[in-house]
């Protein structure tokens, strides 16, 4: 199985570094050989939601004011222990709202209709097809999963912030200080972060893994849909088929996976 070979290689790597020795190999890779005990296995949860290429469609017609966004943002930030910092320079944001001219910088014009001009648009990590942040990261602390989700490994991040310079969407935040004192109510099922690492939207990878939809989807009353962009039968594909949608800065070629119906 691909997975056990992969973990074997990882263990072999650790062993080569002299950190661990034979006993570790016994744990993960050997058993099968002696005795009747089968090898240990790793797998996903049975109920996990999977896709070939995750994507999101936001129907902005269903939002009318900043207040409509608040519960969605709150759901996201609460569940992920995103701190509320008082100093704006140190702000951490996974999901937030901004005006059309700031979100779609290449598409704005003076005479755009009033609804769109003053409508707040939800912004988050675009989980790009060719993410510039992943290219920039010197430790693979940020990486793209096979299913298209761009993730952070907080254990590995050295805090160089190259990814923040690389991201053309301003989707990344840095922990300029210990975030814990600024988390009002800790969700103990999700870790907080420590000072000195970068963070961003994780497409609720931890929820998809146990069969739940992302928190923003649940809180959006149907305004946000996520699904498999590679599956023509999926709900997101149906929405993309039947509506005119735009993406942020498509001209940069990063291939954002978040679509907006305007």
């Amino acid at each position: 199985m691909g997975n056990s070979r992969r973990s074997f290689l990882k263990v072999a790597g650790i062993t080569a570094l002299g950190i661990g020795t034979k006993p570790v190999l016994d744990v993960f890779a050997s058993s099968g050989g002696h005795g009747a005990e089968p090898k240990p296995e790793v797998s996903q949860n049975e109920e996990a939601l999977t896709a070939k290429k995750w994507g999101m469609v936001i129907d902005t017609r269903k939002f009318h004011s900043a207040e409509d966004l608040d519960p969605i943002i709150e759901a996201c930030h609460k569940i992920h222990n995103v701190p509320e910092l008082t100093e704006p320079k140190h702000e951490i944001m996974w999901l937030w709202g901004d005006e059309y001219k700031h979100v779609f910088t290449h598409k704005e014009h003076e005479l755009i209709n009033d609804r769109i001009k003053h409508l707040p648009f939800l912004v988050l990590c675009n989980h790009c097809e060719k993410p510039a942040c992943v290219r920039a990261c010197p430790t693979k602390a940020t990486f793209k999963r096979d299913d298209g989700i761009v993730l952070m490994d907080f254990h590995r991040c050295i805090g160089c912030r190259f990814c923040m310079a690389a991201c053309p969407y301003g989707s990344r935040s840095f922990n300029f200080r210990d975030p814990r004192p600024f988390i009002k109510e800790e969700n103990k099922d999700f870790p907080t972060r420590m000072k000195g690492v970068v963070e961003k939207c994780n497409f609720c990878a931890e929820r998809l893994a146990v069969g739940k939809m992302p928190a923003c989807v649940e809180a959006s009353n149907g305004a946000i849909t996520v699904g498999d962009l590679d599956d023509p039968e999926s709900e997101v594909r149906e929405l993309l088929r039947s509506n005119y949608t735009i993406r942020r800065k498509p001209d940069l070629g990063a291939g954002p996976s978040v679509y907006y119906i305007v």
């Binding site: 010197p138 430790t139 602390a141 991040c157 050295i158 805090g159 160089c160 690492v197």
Partner: peptide, 24 residues
């Protein structure tokens, strides 16, 4: 560079997980 790192204790991750795609 060290002064600028958020987690300088982990600086060696750059060598532990070499990433030739990164300019850094």
């Amino acid at each position: 560079i060290i002064a600028d790192l958020g987690q300088p204790m982990r600086a060696f991750n750059v060598i532990l997980y070499p990433t030739p795609g990164s300019v850094l």
